[in-house]
Nucleic acid binder design. Sequence first.
RNA 1: GGGCGGUUAGCUCAGCUGGUCGAGAGCACUCGCUUUACACGCGAGGGGUCGCCGGUUCGAAUCCGGCACCGCCCACCA
Length: 856
Amino acid sequence: MDEDRRQALETTTRWEPGEAEARIFSRWRESGAFDPPPEGTPEENFSIAIPPPNVTGALHMGHALNGTVQDALVRLRRMEGRKALWILGTDHAGIATQAVVEKQLRAEGIDRHELGREAFVERVWEWRREYGGQIVEQYQRLGASCDYERERFTLDEDYVRAVIKVFASLYEKGLIYRDNYMVNWDPGTSSAISDLEVVNREVTDTLYEIDYPIEGSDEVLTVATVRPETMLADTAVAVNPDDERYGSLVGGHVTLPLVGRRLPVIADEHVDVEFGTGALKITPGHDPADFEIGRRHGLEEISVIGEDGRMTAAAGERFAGMTTTEANAAVVEALRDEGRIRDERPYEHSVPFSERSGERIEPLISLQWFCRMDELAAPAIEAVERDEVRIVPESYKRVYLNWMREIRPWCISRQLWWGHQIPVWYGPGGEEVVAETPELAREAAAERGIDPDALRRETDVLDTWFSSALWPFATLGWPEDTPHLRAFYPTSFLTTAREIIFLWVARMVMMGIEFAGAIPFRDVYVHPVVQAPDGRRMSKSLGTGIDPLDEIDVHGADALRFGMLAISSTQDVRYSPERVQQGRDLATKMWNASRLILLNAGDARPAPRTERPEDRWILTRLDAAVAGFEASIEGYDFAHAVLGFYAFLWSEFCDWYLEIVKPRLYDGDPDAAANLLHVLDQVLRLAHPAMPFVTEEIWGYLPDREQLLIVSPKPSRDPSLVDSEAASAIEREIEQVREVRRWRDLVGVPAAAVLEARIEGELPEFVTRLARLQRSEAGGEAIATIGPVEILASGDVDADGARERIEAERERLRGEIERIERKLGNQGFVAKAPPEVVEGERKKLADYRAELDRLG
RNA sequence: GGGCGGUUAGCUCAGCUGGUCGAGAGCACUCGCUUUACACGCGAGGGGUCGCCGGUUCGAAUCCGGCACCGCCCACCA
């Protein structure tokens, strides 16, 4: 070690991540470790396609957790010698990005329509060039070992080609079609959105009961509704076929108040006899359930609410042009004037809202593009049923399957400008021409006898999730047969938030099988949602958000990564600043333990040494730590992996082994130095996937290190170094030290006092040293007996306190003995419990009795 | 309305194929330490009717049933 480095080690007593992280990250990146050559097979290699963050996004705790998990795995696999590729990229995020730029424009007093589509889209691209890289840089702060050389974007030219190809193919198969259908209209974004983008919230509305006069009678049929304004579009009233009250009315008619339309009374199973009056007004144009009923019965579909959220001409002169809220009041008032309102009361029910804009969904019939999913779903269901795609935790497997088995058509068109414009051109007669480019569209049109000059391109874009569904293979170059696709598809692992299992994961499985010919990934790990420390949602608007970058600034990336892994669980977790601090403390601990070893190891080289029992002990424990870490990781149990490592490093290695070997190290014992360096070397390899920066930094101080830790092999396990007998002997001796210390503390012996003690038989040097005892052959009464140690009276010991302590210990032992005697006296236990359990209890009993004897 | 998960120390969580768990970790707390790696430290300690009720069992935090809260997902009862 050169003088400067030695100096640095001698004077720095803390791990200081600030300067080191950036420096180390650059070295990794320059080393080429992040972008493996596309060689070998997907089975031999390891790959992950990052869940592409939105270009508009900033790194939040969800990314921090999910990024740490992915990076830990990629690093571990890389250290196994595999080609490990972590594909990086961002999502164009249609609505979110368009909204950001629209807001910017509004600030300048510009409406996007003034700008026009082309100029607007150019503005968005400008925005993305300027700000779109932010989140990628933030992932770097985390230490993410992604392939930054091949960053992808879902609107890259190649990517657009892949999307169009998929669209065209599904269209040709008849799975994609255009239809007038009930959609979730979001007045906030002025676009249709899919079922998955709708959230239901409890709302208190007023439930009105309205009388509809029965034709040819003085009676009325009373219906209940929370949206009286939709009555203007009613085209029937339905009752349950088994409802005896109304049987005679079915087939007859009622008159729609205010409008005067004749409405047939129909019978449909959907109607709940119990609810309200048991008669349901049917509005096929503005209610999803009524729409279905309407189609079943061939009812007329009337639209009285337009896409602008206002009443249309079909609503009648009196109401046309009103907003739905105004119309609601006006209709109620009109009905009241006519004496049609029988009852009204507050009513709490769940109402759909747009997840994106927060506005109440307006169900209406609209001409949109849909994708039929059942055919695509079938093989995707099988893949999961057969565990070709494995979902962890397993409970989500059923969630996935249930949803997939009842999958419904997907509304894929969006009335936005930012996104993949649907590659369809309409001829003058409404003919649909699907083509990859305008030129090809003209050619195709000409072939079909359609005037190419009359073609008009569809203005809608595709749902962002349509392009996301292709992510694992489109990022690798599909539809071209690229080396990357051959080497890394299917990918190995996907980690994802629960809420996008349907939105994204399920669709990737379907598209992967359909287009790339194979499942997109083997394992899906559903990561927990990170909540604020108080259990609330982490959100900027609530003020409960914690910025991972702030945490990195203060504690370092390793600390945050450790914390993230340590809180990770199969259920949602609260962010724990204490766990992050624990990570920071661990990094410092590693740093300081390394200083001790490196500054005292002389010119030793790392090598396991097995001459002494304590050396065999630590090698045995190291082996167990490695085994435990790997087993946990294989089960995606990151918390146990990282906490197990913590316990080994802190307690066994630092608290005990380092203390035990210190004198040998200071005396220049080459075996001690070699063994310490060896264990340190292995510890760094073990911890690197979780805490890459501090381990890489320390690694550089080890002798003869020519390659970076990031590309070095993971810890090797050698069964010949394991000696469980030595291990338990050392553990007994450690317990002996603790017993003596406990006694000393209780009795109030000054910490620094070294006590004279007679010791029966042999006891390793470290026991007396760490317990602060001095072997003596003197006679006289022992003031305390702790195992083979008899402590002699001295001025440092409070004799009364000692006696109390001994009596308390006797009491404890008597209690234990009594408990076991009772257990063994139980016939049922002796007869039915497994023999080894009974034997174990007998042995404990004997041990306790011997111990009690010793105390006199 | 269906389904899933949770309820264990002051806080956040482990343990839950029944016995070694008459229960652990981190933080917080108490006492003692300038012990030549580390006070982001060292040593020792206190603290829990394992949500409630019942059952199975020789034995239950751990299995079964019921109840009570809390959370999440799915769902076209107006």
